[in-house]
Design a protein around this nucleic acid. Sequence first.
DNA 1: ATAATATCCTAGTAAAAAGGTAGGAATACT
DNA 2: AGTATTCCTACCTTTTTACTAGGATATTAT
Lengths: 133, 133
Amino acid sequence: MKLSSKARYGLYVAVELAKRYEQSEPVSVQTLAQATGVTEKYLEQIIALMKKQNVVVSLRGAGGGYRLRQTPEQTTVGQVLRAVENDLQIVDCLHGECSGKCNCVMFNLWDKLYENINSYLDTISLKNLLEGL
Amino acid sequence: MKLSSKARYGLYVAVELAKRYEQSEPVSVQTLAQATGVTEKYLEQIIALMKKQNVVVSLRGAGGGYRLRQTPEQTTVGQVLRAVENDLQIVDCLHGECSGKCNCVMFNLWDKLYENINSYLDTISLKNLLEGL
DNA sequence: ATAATATCCTAGTAAAAAGGTAGGAATACT
DNA sequence: AGTATTCCTACCTTTTTACTAGGATATTAT
């Protein structure tokens, strides 16, 4: 139930991108690596996950880099964490085959807990974070 | 961010104890192992964690076993999970030394998320679970 | 007493997941 | 052409998880 480093770094990156959202140029991994203190190679992988979920968009080639797809107001912490944390899923049976393996007294519990966490995380935007919540 | 097997089994055990709360005899690990399908030796360890946090009480010797310390109404899912999941803590800096290592834009976020999850889990009692939530 | 039934305590181990490193191909700007 | 950048994927090391196992200790029943 601990957040992974991917989750922390991913959100960190998102915050950095939010800070620079106004500027026209995209932000390179190199820059992000310096800002966050994480290696470029590792950040690349993390950002790739965010791209896959359309949290960020990329521009290749020299002068390229990444931008948030939506504004810092529109981008939520939930979006970022779901993209990066391969499952924020709590327990397998929620979206897998639950054929008798799990005791479903608890199914409702996990389901509602999951919903609870996510709806909370979606109320918080990157802008909120920048402003100190 | 996925729940461990300890958490699932621990809650499962707690539910079994809740079912048998009315009966006067304590429930042995053997019985619980049969009910849950988990080995005795592994359950022992899990239950030990619950005992340490006073979720359950034990009676040693022949005819001994475990009981919930409080009623199924009073015992919450949060109590069980916190006892068993060594940290439901989400992120280290919350209760550790956060000397500059974490970037505290996010401190508030983790803190509030943690609080959010726990207060939710504490609204649900074992009795609620038994009744289908 | 002694045997039987339990909890309690601790060490070890195999498999999986996390966290990170590395190399190089593809793409776009100058 | 050359350089800066993303993109793709394979590999490795460390930590954590999920268990297994052995035996000590306590309580009850005979």
